[in-house]
């Protein structure tokens, strides 16, 4: 099961992780971007937590509202991208009875929306390189998904992203010089997955 309370915990945990790694995200973004990712993500997730829908029993409604908060508060390109991920996924999830396999299919719709929004594909050194491999694994594992699956795949993806040459955003100006440096968006996506793993652990389904 993936409940509305788990969805809320996921966002609270993500906000905590992002805030405690604010400086790392900013430092990464200073190398290949404009250095505002840590601040933007912290502001966006703080707003998402403040505006969380605490009333509903439907995880889809929780995630959709999170998307709207992120869209209006993150700013930059990460706002519409993370906003699209959560809004699309939230729209896809119906009702209160949601299984992990439903969460996987909704995140698939979310990440496809992000790819379309950012006109991005795999191996372009973006958040897609972190999220899509993890979501593929989630789809494969279905209701058997564990937190260890999520963490292992996310760590592996993070290592791969580092080696790619940036093709999107301001990082693309660095061309081959971007190789070997971490992408700030992939790093923040890693924290989202790590937070989801924490929530699954707490739920005892892991």
């Amino acid at each position: 099961m993936f409940t509305a309370e788990m969805a809320r915990q996921w966002i609270k945990e993500s906000a905590k992780k992002i805030e405690s790694n604010k400086e790392q995200l900013t430092d990464l973004d200073q190398v290949l971007g404009d250095g505002d990712h840590g601040l933007n993500m912290t502001r966006g997730f703080k707003a998402a937590v403040e505006q969380l829908n605490e009333e509903t029993d439907e995880p889809g409604k929780v995630l959709k509202a999170v998307g709207t908060s992120l869209l209006s508060k993150i700013g930059g390109a990460s706002g519409p991208l993370y906003g699209t991920l959560f809004m699309k996924a939230g729209n896809q999830l119906e009702g209160t009875e949601v299984q992990l396999s439903d969460l996987s299919s909704s995140l698939r719709v979310g990440v496809d929306g992000m790819k379309k929004r950012g006109k991005a594909d795999r191996e372009e050194k973006t958040m897609i390189d972190l999220l899509e491999p993890v979501i593929e694994l989630m789809e494969e594992k279905g209701n058997e998904l564990t937190s260890a699956h999520l963490i292992d795949k996310a760590k592996e993806a993070l290592e791969h992203v580092k080696e790619y040459e940036a093709k999107k955003g301001r990082a693309a100006y660095y061309k081959e010089k971007s190789k070997g440096k971490q992408d700030a968006g992939a790093q923040s996506s890693y924290y989202l997955i790590e937070s989801l793993a924490t929530v699954l652990d707490k739920d005892g389904e892991a």
Partner: peptide, 12 residues
């Protein structure tokens, strides 16, 4: 600019 008038852009 953003909703708060900072550097950036806002869909809303």
């Amino acid at each position: 600019g953003t909703d708060d008038g900072d550097m950036g852009t806002s869909a809303i």
